[in-house]
């Protein structure tokens, strides 16, 4: 195995391709290595590449760790960061790595979907920015080409102040989400609802969004209908972590509670 420690983005990009694997915090890749699922031939070590750690307003560099997001991120993204693994994992794991792995249970993804974030990719030949919908293509699959590096996440300006993250899991710390979600509500009532762990990629519950966005002061009955629509829109499966039925119910309850928090 060969490892390259690039001193610049250009050097990092030049090293990609030919089966080279980008290594950031290692919290996903090394599990695969330790269990013999992956045996990398070429690794691009990005942990100390300063340019990837830059955080400039709405542009969060791919190498920014969950620890930094926990203390400096927008409210709901910081709440999500706080539930990523443990202190050890948050010190190492990065937002770029979370996107590269693209687990359906990625804790950072519902926020990106809720606010309509985009993902910046670069190769030696090109640079492009994809919407989150274009970026996530399936379970642990993304539109990133092997010669591309995830450079940064771009958040839109003027995020709603009312934004909440929530996660259902079997314990409080060190847990992979059974369902996770972010709800945002702007002053004009416009509401977004994004969920993770309930479909191959993060999804928006647009029917529920449309229904509740037009109501200035939702009644108890409106909240029940909102919950029902969210449960109807998600597409969960049964696996070792939970059942399709529990996830569907949990998604609706979680989204309704997060909306109630936004409204209170």
């Amino acid at each position: 195995m060969e490892i390259v420690h690039p001193n610049s983005i250009d050097e990092a990009l030049a090293g990609l391709g030919d089966g080279a694997i980008p290594l950031a915090g290692g919290t996903d890749l090394m599990v695969e290595v330790n269990f013999g699922h992956i045996r990398p031939e070429r690794v691009i070590g990005l942990r100390r590449l300063a340019e990837l750690k830059e955080w400039d307003g709405q542009r969060i560099g791919a190498g920014v760790t969950w620890r930094r997001i926990e203390t400096h991120g927008p409210k709901a993204l910081a709440e999500a960061a706080r539930t990523v693994g443990s202190p050890q994992i948050r010190n190492a794991g990065t937002i770029g790595g979370n996107l590269g792995t693209a687990s359906p249970a990625g804790d950072g993804h519902p926020f990106l979907a809720a606010v309509g974030a985009s993902i910046e990719l670069a190769s030696t030949a090109s640079q492009r920015t994809l919407t989150w919908q274009e970026f996530f293509t399936g379970v642990k699959e993304t539109a990133r080409r092997p010669d591309e590096l995830i450079m940064a996440v771009h958040l839109p300006a003027g995020l709603p102040e009312r934004q909440c993250f929530g996660k259902i899991g079997i314990r409080n710390a060190m847990v992979i989400a059974t369902v996770c979600a972010v709800v945002t509500r702007a002053d004009d009532g416009k509401t977004t609802v994004a969920l993770g762990s309930v479909a191959p990629t993060p999804i928006r519950a647009t029917g529920a969004e449309n229904m509740i966005s037009s109501i200035g002061h939702p009644s108890a009955g409106d909240l029940v209908e909102f919950q029902r629509l969210v449960s109807e829109e998600v597409r969960p499966i049964t696996d070792h972590r939970s059942t399709e039925e529990y996830r569907r119910h949990g998604a609706g309850v979680l989204a309704r509670r997060l909306l109630e928090r936004c409204l209170s």
Partner: peptide, 27 residues
């Protein structure tokens, strides 16, 4: 555990607490 869940391999790497099982030695 070799997957960062148990913390029994915790070390301080360049000033940060991490699981040493999740750090590639070459890195």
């Amino acid at each position: 555990c070799e997957q960062g869940e148990c913390g029994s391999c915790s070390v301080i790497l360049d000033g940060e607490l991490v699981c040493s099982c999740l750090v590639m030695a070459a890195d």
